[in-house]
Simulated assay, not measured.
Amino acid sequence: MTTETTAPPVTAFMLIKTQPEWLAMTPQERVNAFTTQVIPAIKAKTTGVRSRFYDTEFYSTRVTDVWVWEADDHEAYQLLIDALRETPFWDRYFEVVDLLVGAENGYARTYGLEPVATIST
């Protein structure tokens, strides 16, 4: 059994749907909007956050993208959300359909167990 001495990172699965204003932009305009409006706001408000992006519009009409955010702690996550809400990202370029927030293997940490997970060989 391993013992963690630090708090686990906070992982947020942000389920979003693109809005007409975002879709009206060219791909380059979208990259420019994200890098000039969203990223600087995040960097100005918080540290210790990372992101990954998944396209889901091929399989879902309700949610077009899933953005996975990992924050070092709850404060960093809260600052991230505050930063996003102050940009056109929130409710202008995207509708935030749902937020699913958790800590990986929280059950194992709670009960002092080794995490159970599948391993692909």
Rank of each mutant, 00 (worst) to 15 (best):
T2S: 14
T3Y: 06
E4G: 04
E4M: 08
T5C: 01
T5A: 04
A7Q: 14
A7L: 10
P8G: 12
V10Q: 03
T11M: 09
T11A: 06
T11N: 13
A12N: 12
A12D: 14
A12V: 06
A12L: 02
F13I: 05
L15N: 02
I16G: 07
I16T: 12
K17F: 01
K17V: 00
Q19I: 03
Q19V: 05
P20S: 04
P20V: 01
P20F: 01
E21L: 06
E21G: 00
W22G: 04
L23E: 15
L23C: 11
A24Y: 03
M25G: 08
M25H: 12
P27Y: 05
P27C: 09
P27F: 05
P27M: 07
Q28W: 03
E29H: 07
E29L: 02
R30Q: 15
R30W: 03
N32I: 01
N32V: 04
N32E: 14
N32F: 03
A33G: 10
A33C: 02
T36Y: 05
Q37A: 07
V38M: 14
I39C: 00
I39N: 03
I39F: 07
A41G: 07
K43R: 13
A44I: 02
K45M: 05
T46W: 04
T46S: 08
V49H: 01
V49D: 02
R50Y: 02
R50L: 03
R50S: 10
R50K: 11
S51A: 14
R52I: 02
F53I: 05
D55R: 14
E57D: 14
F58R: 09
F58A: 15
F58M: 11
Y59Q: 11
Y59E: 13
S60W: 03
R62S: 11
R62N: 10
V63K: 07
V63R: 05
T64K: 09
T64W: 03
V66M: 12
V66N: 00
V66L: 08
V68H: 01
V68Q: 10
E70C: 02
A71R: 04
D73R: 07
E75A: 11
Y77K: 01
Y77R: 03
Q78Y: 03
L79C: 07
L80M: 11
L80W: 06
I81V: 15
I81E: 13
I81G: 03
I81W: 04
D82S: 11
D82P: 00
A83R: 08
L84N: 11
L84S: 10
R85Y: 05
E86F: 00
T87G: 10
F89G: 01
F89W: 10
W90V: 02
W90S: 04
R92Y: 07
R92P: 00
R92D: 09
F94A: 06
F94C: 05
E95F: 00
E95G: 05
E95R: 10
V97T: 09
V97D: 12
V97R: 15
L99D: 13
L100N: 10
L100E: 13
L100F: 13
V101K: 09
G102S: 11
G102A: 11
G102M: 07
G102C: 09
G106T: 05
Y111I: 02
Y111W: 13
Y111C: 02
G112Q: 01
G112W: 01
E114Q: 14
V116C: 01
V116N: 04
V116M: 08
A117Y: 13
